[in-house]
């Protein structure tokens, strides 16, 4: 979907090397507010590496990232506070309850707690709020990790296979959350094997 708006978040000729092997190179994209970028491809093709790179956790082997035209690498801390990263780990402490876990991540990420109830509701977690993390199923843990997105509003969502373990109803909730985020001018980048549907995305196809 070509956009007339200027790019908010862009990558120019990114390259990624892992363990001395070039995973991808010359990767570029430009995202305007409200746009979504879908990363597709077989396992091990660099989707997760790209997401970690976009999160500023992994240094690019080449190329650069731009936010509002400014180089991200020039001020990484400022980049870190405008993004959400949901990776393979759900970051849930097994001895804390679901609500304690969510309240902690929200405060850590600079949220105020005013969206806490809405975040629990958005992923149908109210009835599990006082269950300890170790009693949550894989799908429930995933939902709790995703609830962070709503609990602490941030501009850029980086989601690594967010649909893993989710049932159909939960996937619909995730899709609704992504839709609301985009409608509010946020950007979403997600790696998926097709289980999460996003309308009008930009797509990058990786080849193993």
């Amino acid at each position: 979907m070509p956009s007339a708006e200027p790019a908010l978040f862009a990558a120019q000729a990114l390259a990624c090397a892992r363990g001395g092997r070039l995973v991808f190179e010359e990767l570029s994209f430009a995202l305007a507010p409200g746009e979504a970028l879908l990363l597709r491809g077989p396992n091990g093709c660099g989707k997760s590496s790209l997401l970690r790179m976009l999160a500023g956790l992994l240094r690019p082997a080449g190329g650069r990232l731009l936010w509002e035209g400014e180089a991200v690498a020039a001020d990484l801390p400022a980049h870190h506070v405008r993004l959400h990263y949901v990776g393979h780990g759900n970051a849930i402490a097994t001895t804390l309850t679901a609500e304690e876990n969510l309240a902690f991540s929200t405060e850590l990420l600079g949220g105020t707690g005013e969206h806490l109830a809405a975040a629990l509701a958005a992923f149908d977690l109210e009835s599990l709020a006082s269950s300890p993390g170790r009693f949550l199923s894989a799908g429930q843990r995933r939902r709790l990790a995703l609830a962070r997105l709503v609990a602490a509003p941030r501009k850029l969502w980086l989601l690594d296979e967010p649909g893993v373990g989710l049932d159909r109803a939960s996937r619909a909730r995730l899709e609704a959350a992504i839709g609301a985020h985009r409608a509010a001018g946020g950007i979403c980048v997600l790696a998926t094997h097709g289980d999460v549907a996003v309308p009008d995305p930009l797509v990058i196809d990786f080849h193993g």
């Binding site: 999160a55 506070v81 780990g89 402490a93 850590l108 990420l109």
Partner: peptide
Amino acid sequence: QSDFEDGSLEQLALAAVP
């Protein structure tokens, strides 16, 4: 160790403070 294993470390790195 446990923060590293369960993904909390990434969240700590993205915290609103350095």
